[in-house]
Design a protein around this nucleic acid. Structure first.
Lengths: 211, 211
DNA sequence: TTTGTGTTATTTACCGGTCGGTAAATACAA
DNA sequence: TTGTATTTACCGACCGGTAAATAACACAAA
């Protein structure tokens, strides 16, 4: 039972109602009464299945994050040039989150929201995994002689910035100003820059600048 | 009276307490009782000065956003090459928000949070203003012959992605994994790419890729 | 200087409403 | 009859907001 197909069981209806309400009103602002009314049951039923409001929230999150892990594991076997692999990695992640926009919006709300609002979950772990995966892809591109960058960390953060901003656009704009095509175009531009030897003798801009 | 120097007046103590509490616990989760207790006054005093919980929130936001407008207006007179101007623009914005981290963290929490939590404020307007300012700087760089990019919109979003991700790091990581130096390095890398003529005959990656 | 007076600032005590959670009884299927 | 599933009715706590009384203060008149 994935997050998008919760079935018709009482338990599934409660999970679906909780996700929709947490997403629209926030965790703290959603009352247990609203969840059970939306699901068409009474209050003790929720406590029967999930123990508490925190319980149903954690069930939602852990099952969704497990889906993310599974999809990420399915992505390790990509062939092609370094640039192709990087673009493909970002595209798969983007597709994945577009399919789970409701969950992602909730995650962002809780990540940027106040810490006490919802039971703590280490979302940073997943973000860091994305960053280090991209950095590994860049390093591999360098060792193959396909990419030429001074610092893999800098290069990886440029890629992640583009992916991250694209994801945020999906969450907060309808329609998003950045779609999959534009993200690929942005990635193409910066990767093209990575493929050309940097000119280290002529600095891009002076350290001291006049205002 | 700026957001960082609220003085010792009762009104100022209420604003300082509200900002700290909204920032730590969120708008909805902060009770009026907590605000007045932190400020060392009683409840009707808040209603006397601000009319409601929404009132003190809007006072906080509007005064802070007015500061942002003032700083942005002070920034129009930058000299130098297009790349220098872009980097300087991003650096000034970064310095500005580092000085106002508490307010920015609250803004992010509300922007990504559920819409009903706090009275609506059009934060997108400020973000769009940043995007279009960067796009104008890129266009100027092209017309001067300093930059060579296929699409100013794409180029502007790359710059904004880097700035945006850097800002988010200041909010959510201590210490941030991206500091001012790394942001400038990222901007330098992509702007160096913008300065080199794109090779349009050899596409970066194939449209169809094998997995 | 003292007194009266209106305005500003602050207090105590309270309102109806909603919250998360639970005890205890009941319906129902095996 | 036994265990699972679901109900009604309730608890104490906290919520945003307010009415009404009072304290503090500035300032003009006596």
């Amino acid at each position: 039972m994935t997050v998008n197909e919760k079935g018709d069981s009482v338990r599934g209806k409660l999970l679906a109602a909780a996700l929709a309400l947490f997403n629209n009103k926030g965790y703290a602002a959603t009352s247990v009464r609203e969840i059970v009314q939306t699901a068409g049951v009474t209050k003790p039923v929720l406590y029967y299945y999930f123990g508490s409001k925190e319980g149903i929230y954690l069930e939602l999150m852990h099952s969704s994050l497990a889906e993310f892990d599974a999809s990420l594991a399915r992505m390790t076997t990509i062939s092609g040039t370094a640039a192709e692999r990087i673009v493909h990695f970002c595209s798969v992640i983007l597709d994945l989150i577009i399919d789970r926009l409701e969950v992602l919006r909730l995650i962002y709300a809780i990540y940027y929201g106040p810490p006490q609002e919802a039971p703590p979950i280490n979302f940073d772990e997943y973000y860091s995994r994305i960053v280090s995966t991209v950095e590994a892809l860049v390093e591999e591109g360098i060792s193959r002689g396909e990419l030429a960058v001074d610092d893999t960390y800098t290069a990886a953060w440029i890629i992640v910035s583009i992916l991250s901003t694209t994801m945020e656009e999906q969450i907060c704009h309808t329609p998003p100003r950045i779609d999959a095509r534009l993200m690929e175009r942005m990635l193409g531009v910066v990767l093209q820059g990575f493929q050309q030897k940097a000119n280290r003798n002529e600095p891009l801009y002076e350290k001291e600048m006049k205002i």
